[in-house]
């Protein structure tokens, strides 16, 4: 999940008798599965929560380009390089769709960018882990994009129109991401002993961080009933994590690799795997800024923003000059 621990604004779900007429009509609209559009009336807390959630999601798409960008110049073949480049380029597009959706709520693109750069807004914990070998490109596509898909598919039905439409576009593009990742894993798992060892190593390092993507267990999670009532959160963290584990374990077996969770076990009764939770203290430390790559990621984004400033300014100055010249001629 690209939005983790998004704090829901407000004081929790109100009883109908405590709602204003506007709030009642708003909730009824959501309950009828109608979309909320930018100019419609909405509670301030709904707006504030969505800005946090969509903003964090957008930041994750953008920062998520860094661990893969790391391997663009070192891809093993020209074809692999072209594929990875196309995938990373898609992620830039995903960031754009989401920033655009977020801007319809009344926050500007520059404000969002600045909140990422100064650490006021977060991005997914997963991108604070390094990508150490080529097999990581396989494991990231397969596991990280796979976990993102789990979360994004239900969000296509979210109540906020622009967010829902962004999710529809994103979901169309994501399955290529997961499949190209799994194709790398298949190749490496069937390769030389060294290649297979690299594939296993990538899986070992990324398994638990991928499970963390869904956010803390329901038991530890911040109160999310309000977000569910608003339909900006559709499933609980544990539901999505369980679905992800159930889908992924057979894929590990298909590759002939070993699940890093030594206690993974099929539970006939619940029709799913029993799995070990990730180390939540590690998760909270990464969120706080103490993961292996937090400083690098933020430094890279800050440098890109700073070094690109003269280009942004020059293009705008040129456009204004051209417009002024046209006005004089007319």
């Amino acid at each position: 999940m690209y939005a983790q621990m998004v704090k829901t604004a407000g004081t929790g779900v109100k009883k109908p008798k405590d709602m204003t007429a506007e709030e009642k009509a708003f909730q009824a609209k959501i309950d009828r599965n109608e979309k909320i559009e930018p100019k419609d009336w909405m509670p301030d807390d709904y707006r504030a929560t969505l800005i946090r959630q969509i903003g964090q999601h957008a930041h994750s798409e953008i920062v998520g380009q860094l661990p893969e960008g790391n391997w663009l110049t070192r891809a093993p073949t020209l074809e692999r390089k072209a594929i990875l480049l196309a995938k990373v380029q898609d992620e830039a597009g995903h960031g754009l769709y989401l920033y655009s959706a977020c801007e319809t709520l009344g926050v500007s693109r520059d404000e969002l960018t600045e909140m990422l750069l100064n650490g006021k807004m977060k991005y997914s914990s997963i991108f604070n882990y390094p990508t150490l070998n080529w097999a990581d490109m396989g494991a990231v596509g397969w596991l990280v994009d796979g976990a993102a898909i789990m979360n994004q598919v239900p969000l296509q039905r979210t109540s906020y129109g622009p967010y829902s439409r962004a999710m529809v576009r994103i979901c169309k593009e994501e399955s290529f991401h997961q499949r190209q990742g799994y194709a790398i894993m298949m190749k490496m798992a069937a390769g030389t002993a060294d290649q297979k060892r690299m594939a296993q190593d990538a899986l070992d390092r990324l398994w638990f961080p991928s499970l963390m993507m869904f956010g803390p267990s329901n038991k530890e999670s911040v109160h999310s009933e309000q977000s569910m009532a608003w339909r900006i959160k559709i499933n609980t963290n544990d539901e999505l994590r369980q679905k992800f584990v159930d889908q992924t374990v057979p894929q590990i077996e298909f590759l002939g690799l070993t699940c890093p969770d030594k206690d993974i076990k099929w539970n006939e009764e619940k029709g799913g795997y029993d799995y070990t939770d990730p180390d939540w203290s590690e998760f909270f430390a990464v969120l706080k800024g103490n993961g292996p790559c937090n400083k690098d990621r933020l430094a890279a984004r800050n440098a890109a923003w700073k070094n690109g400033a003269w280009v942004r300014d020059a293009m705008l100055a040129h456009a204004r000059k051209k417009a002024a010249r046209k006005a004089v001629a007319a």
Partner: peptide, 11 residues
Amino acid sequence: VGSLHAADAES
């Protein structure tokens, strides 16, 4: 299909 920011029509 969506929106974007750009300095002018051409870009």
